[in-house]
């Protein structure tokens, strides 16, 4: 898979404080990568460097092969950066706001209007086009900010805490938008404190602590690192006791723990073994209703990879 964002050896100091220390990671096209770390770990500084807003003391970031340090203007056309807060312009409507940024990106005439309409439709802002932007709710503001980020159709999206302050519905909607963008082939780097959000939408994570990368990789790789075996979730219509007994009898199952009316099991076998396990459960008349890979718990992963140091 092609690497859309390639950060290598990024270092950035503020006086004696090393905010970012030899940070290297990659984000691929069509994937959502989470950027997690405690407060003051260097997430925002790294993201600002990636978005051409700051310069590292050493190291470089390539966006689709273009250096953000040497060719910032070219890199900017490939990046959409959404900061943690949407700066508002007073006395400006939603359409005017998007129109202004569309003009800034060099879109002209009918092409500009078409692009604005498309973005408003994608972000669900069409009915708010004449609304003053300082009267928007937090969720709508975030949608507007995302819309502004998408105006020039960037290949890479860098989103700094996009879900902070959103209500549950807005969060779900926002997550769906992000997923849809990744499905369009865009790479997304997203930082958030709400780890449960990330675990449901991310393909990989970069864990940063005290300016250094604590761990980076695809979620299934990290999951495998945390546990030696494959993790599966199983739920059946039958009583839990019966299911537990059946699982315990399977030689491939090396660990069982209850979770949400079902069980998370550690399984040692390959795909053939997994298929055989499911078949055996059906043969015993246990009626499975859920049987899937168990998603990694990012909170657990975060706690295990970081030590809680603050800068």
């Amino acid at each position: 898979m092609s690497s859309l964002l390639q950060a290598s050896g990024l270092t950035r100091s503020f006086g004696s404080l090393k905010a970012v220390n030899h940070v290297s990671f990659e984000v691929h096209a069509g994937e959502v990568w989470g950027f997690i770390g405690p407060n003051g770990a260097g997430k925002t500084t790294t993201m600002r460097i990636c978005a051409t807003l700051d310069l590292p003391d050493s190291g470089d970031v390539l966006v689709d092969g273009v250096s953000v340090i040497l060719e910032p203007q070219q890199a900017r056309s490939r990046i959409g950066f959404m900061p943690d807060t949407l700066g508002t312009y007073p006395d400006t409507t939603v359409f005017e706001y998007l129109d202004f940024f569309a003009r800034c990106t060099g879109l002209r005439g009918p092409e500009r209007r078409q692009r604005i309409e498309a973005v408003m439709e994608f972000t669900g802002l069409t009915h708010l086009r004449e609304r003053m932007m300082d009267s928007l709710s937090k969720g709508m503001s975030q949608r507007l900010c995302l819309g502004k980020t998408l105006l020039h159709d960037p290949q890479l999206l860098i989103l700094d805490e996009p879900a902070s302050g959103l209500d549950p519905r807005a969060r779900v909607e926002f997550r769906e938008l992000i997923r849809a963008l990744a499905d369009q082939g865009k790479g997304v780097l997203i930082s958030s404190h709400i780890l449960s959000e990330l675990s449901e939408s991310c393909d990989g994570v970069v864990v940063i602590e005290q300016g250094k990368i604590a761990r980076t990789g695809h979620l299934h790789e990290l999951s495998a690192e945390m546990s030696e075996h494959e993790m599966l979730f199983i739920r059946t219509l039958s009583p839990a006791r019966e299911l537990e007994m059946a699982l315990a009898e399977n030689p491939g199952v090396v660990g069982i723990r209850p979770e949400r009316k079902g069980f998370v099991i550690e399984f040692t076998g390959d795909d053939q073994g997994i298929a055989a396990l499911l078949e055996s459960l059906v043969q015993r008349g246990l009626k499975p209703v859920e049987f899937h890979w168990h998603r990694i718990d990012l909170e657990q992963l975060f706690l295990s990879f970081t030590e809680g140091h603050l800068q």
């Binding site: 950066f81 502004k148 020039h152």
Partner: peptide, 15 residues
Amino acid sequence: AEREERTYDALVISG
């Protein structure tokens, strides 16, 4: 206002 409302960064990366 660009600095106070934190819109200057958006202007810079807008091209």
